[in-house]
Computed example of a mutant assay.
Amino acid sequence: MTRAEFTTGTGLENNKQGLYALKKADLFNLLCIPSHTPGGDIEPGLVGDAAKFCEDSRAFLLVDPRSDWNSKDRAKAGVGSVGTTSNYAALFFPRLSQPNSLHDDQLEDFVPCGAVAGIFARTDAQRGVWKAPAGLDATLVGVPKLNVPLNDPENGELNPLGINCLRMFPVGGRVVWGARTLQGNDRFASEWKYIPVRRTALFIEESLYRGTQWVVFEPNDEPLWAQIRLNIGAFMNNLFRQGAFQGKSPREAYLVKCDKETTTQNDINLGIVNIVVGFAPLKPAEFVIVKIQQLAGQIAV
């Protein structure tokens, strides 16, 4: 893609051009923006705009390391200037060294976002979005070398800063060895510290938003709320049985609330139904809360 295709701005957003051409797509889950020049970088401002766009689109951004990050220390010094600290984004370091077929198969450095996106997709298909796309199963197939080798102590310095390391292990080969968002820095103490927690919430939110659109022309009262609780409860229980949540029982794993406490009389007057869903991604009965709002009780004239 050309430089112009990655530009941003209010006019481009309104006209669904540049980055915002993705608004024409019904759904996307992962966003990668490689540089428009070989071995180059994208602008930090574009990273920030892309992260904000992902927040609005319930998607996740994969951020590449800068081309001048040729050591662990350069990565530590530069992590604060990548353009975003959004929990809808994750940073991976270092770059990949691979043969370039356009240059007689000479080893050159490439950004890792495409390969990492493939691991995300493979993990989603085999295990689900609640499984961290990292570990000895998250192998970088066809990657002979990393441009900065990292050891355990170096990984231990970078990971608490929210930098996900790509590592080489004698048995596992080259793998993704980190699953933190850009709010994964320990000093942020964010509930969205880990990639699978954020992406599971996005998956649930998008699924419920699309799956509850049938409520639009239903009377906004207790029978509707009971039906919503039943439908969403069945969806969440199915995820629980697949191992998406912590806890030995549904009560410990998730909650679904839609009643007169979530939807007040004022909400009813405005034609709004509020749904609160919680799930336990890390510890039983410690819920991350997702809130869904739909129109209900609308009358077609």
Rank of each mutant, 00 (worst) to 15 (best):
G9L: 12
E13T: 05
N14T: 10
N15Q: 12
G18W: 11
D26V: 06
L30K: 05
E43R: 05
P44Q: 12
P44I: 09
V47I: 08
A51C: 08
D56P: 00
F60V: 11
V63H: 02
D64P: 00
N70F: 05
R74L: 14
R74W: 04
R74M: 12
T84F: 08
Y88A: 13
P94F: 12
P94Y: 05
R95E: 07
L96C: 06
S97R: 15
Q98A: 07
H103G: 03
D109T: 15
V116N: 10
T123H: 08
D124Q: 05
A125W: 11
G128M: 09
V129P: 01
A132K: 06
G135A: 06
A138K: 06
A138D: 10
T139C: 02
V141T: 10
L146E: 07
N151D: 14
P153C: 03
E154W: 05
G156P: 00
E157D: 14
L161V: 01
G162R: 03
I163H: 06
P170C: 01
G172K: 00
V176W: 00
G178S: 09
N185G: 15
D186C: 01
I195S: 06
R198W: 03
R199V: 03
E205Q: 13
W214Q: 04
W214D: 05
F217I: 02
R229I: 04
F235D: 11
Q242R: 14
Q246E: 11
K248M: 03
P250E: 13
P250G: 05
P250F: 08
E252C: 02
E261R: 07
Q265R: 08
I268S: 08
G271D: 08
G271I: 12
A280V: 02
A285S: 13
F287Y: 10
F287I: 10
L295V: 05
Q298H: 11
Q298F: 13
